[in-house]
Design a protein around this nucleic acid. Structure first.
Lengths: 136, 136
DNA sequence: AAGTAAATAGGAATCAATACTAAATAGGAA
DNA sequence: TTCCTATTTAGTATTGATTCCTATTTACTT
C-alpha cells in the first residue's frame, strides 16, 4: 500500500505510513475522526486535516473504499476486494459480508441504457445480534 | 400519502401537501435544497426549515427513502417499493433500476450470524450515458 | 548536502442539517 | 364556529463533518 503511494506520485511521509497502517489492520470500518484518534496514539501531533487529506487521497485513487451508512460521517475500508456490508442501524456496526458466488447481484437489462456500471455497492441494513439481545 | 400523514398523527398542512406533491411527482431523487426551491414556485414563503422538518418526519416514518450517494447532501425518493439505483459519479444523476426477479441479491449464510436484515440497498455506480458522451 | 515542490499543523472557514425563539397561523375536534 | 394545539415563519444560533489557509517543515531529486 505504501508502494501504491509512490506509484501515484505521493510522498511517503511518517504520518501517511501510520494512517495506512491503522486502516489496514482494522476491520471495523472507522470514520476519519476515529482513525485520527488512533493514529494519535503513536503520533500525538497528527492534525485532523492531515488524516482527512490522506484518506481522501487514498479514496480518490481507489486504494480504499468509502461507505456511506447515514447522513453523518463517511466510513472507510482498506479492503477493496469485492464484498458487501451489513450495517446495524442501531449501533452503527459494519461487518464485512462475502459476495456469494458470481456477481452477487445481477443488473437488470435496463442498466446498459442508463450508463456504464463501474462498481456495485450492496448494503444489508438491520439490527446486529448484540442490539437484538440488548433490547429485550 | 397525505392519508399516511393523518394515520401518523401529523396535521395535513398546505406546506406538507405541496412538499409531498413535489417529491411524489419527480423521479430525480432531489435533495432538500432542491425540493425547497421547487416548492417555493408555488408557496414562495416556505422556509427551508419546514422542508427539512417535513422530509425528516416522512423519512422517520418510512414514508420516503433516503439515498446517500456521496459525503455531501442526502437525496430522497418517494418510491418505497423495492428497487435499486444507478448513480452517476460524474454528474450525480440517480436513476431507478428495477430489482430483477427474486431477491435481486442473495445474502451469504454468514449474514444470519451477524444480525437481522431488514432491507437491502443496492447501488450501481458508474458514469451515465450523458457523461460518457460528454467526455469524448 | 542543497534546493524545491509537496506535505504538515493549527486554526479558521464552510457547509448541511438541526435547534431555538417568538409571534402568527391554521388544522381538527367539540 | 370556537378553542386548543401543532405547525409555520423568520431569523439567529448551533452542531458536526469536512475543507481551506498559511507559515513552517519534510521528502525526494540532483
Amino acid at each position: 500500500m505504501v508502494e501504491a503511494l509512490r506509484a501515484n506520485g505521493l510522498k511517503v511521509t511518517h504520518q501517511r505510513t501510520e494512517i495506512i497502517r491503522e486502516i489496514v489492520q482494522t476491520k471495523d470500518h472507522p470514520d476519519v475522526e476515529t482513525i485520527c484518534r488512533r493514529v494519535r496514539g503513536r503520533i500525538p501531533a497528527v492534525s485532523l486535516d492531515t488524516v482527512y487529506r490522506t484518506i481522501s487521497a487514498l479514496f480518490e485513487r481507489g486504494l480504499i473504499n468509502r461507505i456511506m451508512v447515514d447522513a453523518k460521517r463517511a466510513r472507510y475500508d482498506a479492503d477493496v476486494t469485492r464484498h458487501n456490508h451489513f450495517v446495524c442501524d442501531t449501533c452503527g456496526r459494519i461487518v464485512d459480508i462475502d459476495s456469494t458466488g458470481r456477481g452477487g447481484c445481477r443488473a437488470s437489462d435496463k442498466l446498459s441504457e442508463v450508463g456504464v456500471v463501474e462498481r456495485v455497492e450492496v448494503l444489508f441494513r438491520g439490527k446486529c445480534i448484540h442490539c437484538v439481545a440488548d433490547q429485550e
